[in-house]
């Protein structure tokens, strides 16, 4: 297990907290919470040694969707593609009831 922490300078506020996903093998859960602080991502992952990959996946996500949020990720060995998918799903949840 490895924990990592990332900050991003993104400013688009989100309206409500959302949760998607399950900590299943090859999968992850993502929680977005509104914040007025700096955007923060805390990752707990079962696969050690991929901090750089996490950084890249998250940077690409925030480049496209500069939301301001406190994000928690519990991961059980998902690939970058799955990570991106869950993050995007969480965004869709946000839009759902807007």
């Amino acid at each position: 297990m490895e924990k990592s922490h990332f900050n991003f300078d993104t400013k688009e506020a989100i309206s409500k907290p959302v949760h998607v996903g399950v900590v299943a093998s090859g999968d992850l859960e993502v929680i977005f919470r509104p914040t007025n602080q700096e955007t923060e991502v805390n990752v707990v992952t079962g696969s050690d040694g991929f901090k750089e990959v996490w950084g890249n996946v998250l940077k690409r996500f925030f480049d496209r969707y500069p939301i301001q949020a406190n994000i928690e990720i519990n991961d059980f060995g998902s690939t970058p593609g799955v990570v991106n998918l869950r993050l995007t799903q969480a965004l869709e949840e946000l839009k759902d009831e807007k």
């Binding site: 297990m1 949760h19 859960e29 707990v44 079962g46 928690e72 519990n74 991961d75 059980f76």
Partner: peptide, 21 residues
């Protein structure tokens, strides 16, 4: 007591296991 209530197991992380919310 859903995922946003942050009621995770206090016993998994000390054993190096990823918890679920």
């Amino acid at each position: 007591v859903g995922p946003l209530d942050n009621m995770i197991s206090p016993h998994l992380e000390p054993q190096g296991i990823v918890p679920e919310s």
